[in-house]
Design a protein around this nucleic acid. Structure first.
Lengths: 220, 220
DNA sequence: ATCATAAATTAGACCGGTCTAAAAATAATC
DNA sequence: GATTATTTTTAGACCGGTCTAATTTATGAT
């Protein structure tokens, strides 16, 4: 039996590893889960005993193969539910995260396979993140990069958001930016790393570094 | 914050009260939840402190008004999910109970209102049980009675099952009996309280008392 | 190399929920 | 009414998960 708490740790370690490449530090995990480092140490010990993580004290935590597999299937569930909530229950993309955090712990592979089929095997969730299939495979995001790294005058379109917080998503909504929106970088300002972009509907839109780092785009 | 364990106790007390009319005994609750009487005593004490149940030691446990309200909304969630699983994910009616037991603890009134709307406000779940609306109201089942009480030569149709266990439901499937099936009681045998019924597709079907007690029907 | 600082771990406590074993209260039987 | 059987409650333990406080380990600055 796996508990929700364990699953949340696995997911946190998974997503920290995805970002940093390296093993996740105790403090990083604690920050990510809004918990205390001592709690992390405890839980990591348990997960290690279950063969789900490797842990070299003071060096970091990483998922084992089975740990990665488990984490990927939780991510699958999370993204399937987000997709369902947005596409079928008319939630907005900034409303679904917390609900999906609950739903992702439902223990049934079959249910999620059926949900997947019901939605016709969607490849991406509402934030542009790829949905792993039942074997954990997902489309690779080669060619995707943060808007902050796009060269001047390149035509791109938005394929994802790195930050799925309601605040960020509402900001994008307010600027008329959503998945699929086509953008061109007009100018880049060294002063604060802000960029000026134009879309079909709006030109001369100034985006600060925080925004451009969190917008994932792909050349067209 | 309410926990899943608390919710399961409330639901158990609710359904025991529904059957027996009276307050639920400690042992009955324990049996229903496959737990121990001492655990029930503990939990009942906590629920009482939260104002969800009344408890006269050695006399029984009953839900307060707020307790009833909470329990009803859990039942609502359970039945909405069962309906969704059967009607949209193609589950059979004997497969959905355990999944719904998990899903009913999802904490969001809004999600369930949307699910309700998505399905066009169904009035009954796949077992014929009425689905409470967001205010806890449900259609009353006046006129419904167990098949065991139906007089000879009365035309009735199946509107529900009292026992939703997979075993019983599979038995019904095997006999070609489902919600809506029209039946007439041909004969009643005093020896073992079995009844012989006829449907459009099958005549002279002998049902034992256990079955006829658990089949809810309504005159036509 | 030493010392201060930061990160990680351990020790010990608490809470919710469960259990077993024992005690207390009620009901049933003679 | 006294005794037995049953139900319920209490007492005490354990587990998973969390916390604070104290300790240990590693790192960075001088």
């Amino acid at each position: 039996m796996r508990t929700s708490a364990e699953e949340n740790y696995l997911k946190a370690i998974f997503s920290l590893a995805e970002q940093n490449g390296k093993g996740a530090s105790t403090t990083a995990i604690a920050a990510h889960l809004r918990t205390k480092a001592s709690s992390v140490t405890d839980m990591v010990k348990r997960l290690n005993e279950k063969g789900l993580v490797d842990h070299r004290p003071y060096y970091g935590v990483s998922l084992t193969d089975t740990g990665t597999q488990v984490a990927t299937l939780i991510v699958r569930k999370h993204r399937l539910w987000e997709t369902f909530l947005v596409n079928h229950l008319n939630y907005r993309w900034d409303e679904v995260h917390d609900l999906a955090e609950q739903l992702e712990h439902i223990d049934s592979v079959d249910l999620h396979d059926r949900l997947d089929k019901f939605m016709d095997h969607p490849k991406f969730d509402p934030h542009g993140d790829p949905i792993p299939d039942r074997e954990g495979r997902m489309v690779d995001m080669a060619g995707a990069q943060p808007l902050s790294e796009v060269a001047k005058d390149t035509l791109v379109h938005i394929v994802g958001v790195k930050d799925s917080s309601p605040a960020f998503l509402k900001l994008l909504d307010g600027l008329g930016l959503k998945l699929g929106t086509q953008l061109t970088v007009n100018r880049r300002f060294e002063y604060d790393n802000s960029v000026e972009v134009s879309s079909r509907f709006r030109s001369g839109l100034l985006l600060n570094e925080q925004v451009s780092l969190n917008l994932t785009v792909k050349a067209l």
